[in-house]
Design a protein around this nucleic acid. Structure first.
Lengths: 140, 140
DNA sequence: CTCGTTGTAACCATTATAGTTACATCGATT
DNA sequence: AATCGATGTAACTATAATGGTTACAACGAG
């Protein structure tokens, strides 16, 4: 299967940079991530929409809207990895209603899927941007 | 982002069917899942490679290689959702080494990613095909 | 007014998914 | 032996996500 996109790691990287150096331009971030500035701007756009980041027009520069310990990795994940109905697992859509097994399996399988997703999200929710930067931020 | 493919739910569906009706043909499964038989055969191929299923050549018919309580949803997931290096999360590949943040973030972010994946897998590992079928299997 | 920056639009190449047709091959039955 | 249903693949298609790219309008500060 396809991996979860690099938008998540890129977003986390640039947000961590913002936690140190306050106003940062897209080109500076693109230099650190080593990708095209437009890729960065698209991600910044998603982070803005999620309310994690403010961008100054004209002169440029992005900064966090709150403290790094108020932003979890789940906040970042949900900002850049948007999935339909916030449901990660697909379920084949036309199971034959004449098949008693399909009908009965669906409910419990969907529940397990949902629990699995929730367990993953919980791990992301327990780590803040602050914790991630960790030792580095002590030096500030 | 893209959802996890329907192969997982389809594979679980047809394995649950096999837990009841022992030798099952691909066309019967395709009828219950309501998809093309070739899609089923491709999934069966993956389940065979993972050692979960036996297929009788010529006359046809697939059956489980072990009891339904010896097959977990994680077994099924790993059989049909193969991801490079078994690592679900991507990490952008050329972070600039001159950026101290990128370098320092990578290790801890990768750890959290790995924990999140493990938490999800653990939920899948705790449910067996037998448990999923649940009440239905009591009637056997 | 100019300059650097941002926000988008418009492409492009690559890849995964899901479906489809076609066909060689196998084993059992007649 | 010939036939029949079933499996295993190859080949092709359409659709969509990802990641990169160029181009350009708009904005604010100097």
């Amino acid at each position: 299967m396809r991996k979860i996109s690099s938008r998540f790691s890129i977003a986390t990287h640039i947000l961590a940079m913002m936690a140190f150096n306050h106003p940062l331009t897209g080109d500076q971030m693109a230099g650190s991530v080593q990708t095209n500035p437009v890729v960065i701007r698209r991600i910044i756009g998603q982070l803005k929409k999620a309310g994690l980041v403010n961008v100054k027009a004209g002169t440029g520069g992005a900064r966090l809207t709150r403290d790094a310990d108020q932003i979890t990795l789940l906040d970042i994940f949900n900002a850049v990895e948007v999935v339909e109905d916030n449901v990660l697992f697909n379920f084949h859509e036309h199971p034959n209603l004449d098949c008693p097994i399909g009908a009965n399996i669906e409910r419990s399988l969907r529940r397990t899927m949902s629990e699995a997703q929730a367990a993953m999200e919980d791990k992301l929710a327990r780590v803040t941007l602050r914790q991630l930067a960790g030792e580095l931020m002590e030096l500030e």
